[in-house]
């Protein structure tokens, strides 16, 4: 075999190569033409991405190294913004901690609520469509200012929740006015909007083969055990997807805190979230350079957290390609 092979190749090579050449050139030309078409179709998006995303990002990266008050030309200050942020600005750290607490509270609770609702919906036969829409509605409404205002009214001193609790003899006063509770109210507003992850969970649940549950039942697994040993692992890719998405969103929480606290992150900076402080620095205090630096730090932090999540997923996410 080894001795024969080179001979064979020698005799066949010239024959095989000659006709292949024009065909290959023809193929490359056609490929290039096809790629050209792809670029044309992509161009609106590319243009948008370049003008509306990439350029502002690069500009903000530049601004983060400057002192810029929006009205006079930016002045290069090197790493001053970053140094100030990390060493001389207690409100910055307050906002960072608030945001971290918020992420740690809101994301798990929201995912748990979404999963619970999805499990409940998956087990009912009739009216699934109605309940699905009903549970999804807050996600559509929740992003609006008006709901945040309603939320504020609900949890205010003398608001509905306060009234209700008073009638049971619990005297809380306004939830949003108390530093200890205000963050929770904002988190609750987010948790309440569990519609999007719920729909994704529901789709995931419907993908789990029924025979797996039956096998587990015959094996002697009770309801809880089936949830732990079948539902959770089978749902882990969907859970992971939701976790990454919601975590990224939670880091950037703005609207609910802005509305509930009237834009100031009060009371006593207890709902001063990162983006709220960023907005305050950039647009209220006119330190656009500083705000840009904050934005870049947030981007890096989100990047690191997401990377960590992906790293951890290797040990708890099970992708199941058939069987």
């Amino acid at each position: 075999m080894n001795v024969e092979a080179p001979d064979q190749r020698l005799s066949e090579k010239p024959r095989a190569e000659k006709p292949a050449e024009p065909a290959e050139a023809e193929g490359t030309r056609r490929k290039r033409k096809r790629e050209g078409a792809a670029w044309v179709f992509l161009s609106p998006w590319l243009l948008g991405a370049a003008v509306l995303t990439l350029t502002p990002m690069l500009v903000s990266l530049y601004l983060s190294f400057t002192e810029y008050d929006l009205f006079t030309a930016p002045e290069w200050v090197g790493l001053d913004n970053y140094v100030h942020m990390f060493t001389e600005d207690p409100r910055y750290w307050r906002s960072a901690v608030n945001t971290l607490v918020y992420v740690l509270v809101a994301v798990p609770l929201q995912l748990a609520a979404a999963l619970a609702a999805a499990l409940a919906l998956n087990s009912i036969g009739r009216g699934k469509g109605f309940y699905r829409s009903a549970f999804y509605a807050p996600s559509l409404l929740g992003a609006s200012m008006s709901i945040a205002l309603v939320w504020r009214a609900l949890f205010n001193d003398g608001g509905t929740v306060d009234d209700l609790l008073s009638s049971f003899g619990v005297n809380m006063g306004g939830w949003v006015n108390q530093p200890g509770w205000a963050l929770l109210v904002v988190a609750l507003l987010t948790i309440w909007q569990f519609g999007a992850p719920m729909v994704i969970f529901l789709a995931g649940l419907q993908q789990i083969p029924g025979e797996l549950y039956e096998a587990a039942e015959v094996d002697g697994a009770g309801r809880l055990r089936r949830f732990r040993s079948v539902t959770l692992p089978m749902l882990s890719p969907v859970l992971f997807f939701n976790l990454v998405l919601q975590t990224i969103q939670a880091f950037q929480v703005f609207t609910p805190a802005f509305t509930v606290s009237g834009g100031r992150g009060g009371p006593a900076d207890s709902t001063l979230f990162y983006t709220l402080y960023l907005y305050d620095r950039g647009f209220t205090a006119s330190h656009m350079g500083y705000a840009s630096a904050m934005a870049w730090v947030l981007l890096v932090v989100i990047g690191i957290v997401t990377a960590l999540l992906f790293r951890s997923s290797r040990s708890w996410v099970f992708y199941n390609d058939k069987g």
Binding site: P209, E211, L212, E214, A215, A216, S229, V230, P233, M234, S236, F318, N320, G323
Partner: peptide, 9 residues
């Protein structure tokens, strides 16, 4: 079972 229903994880 027909599909074997093995636990994939």
């Amino acid at each position: 079972f027909q599909s074997y229903a093995l636990y994939p994880h």
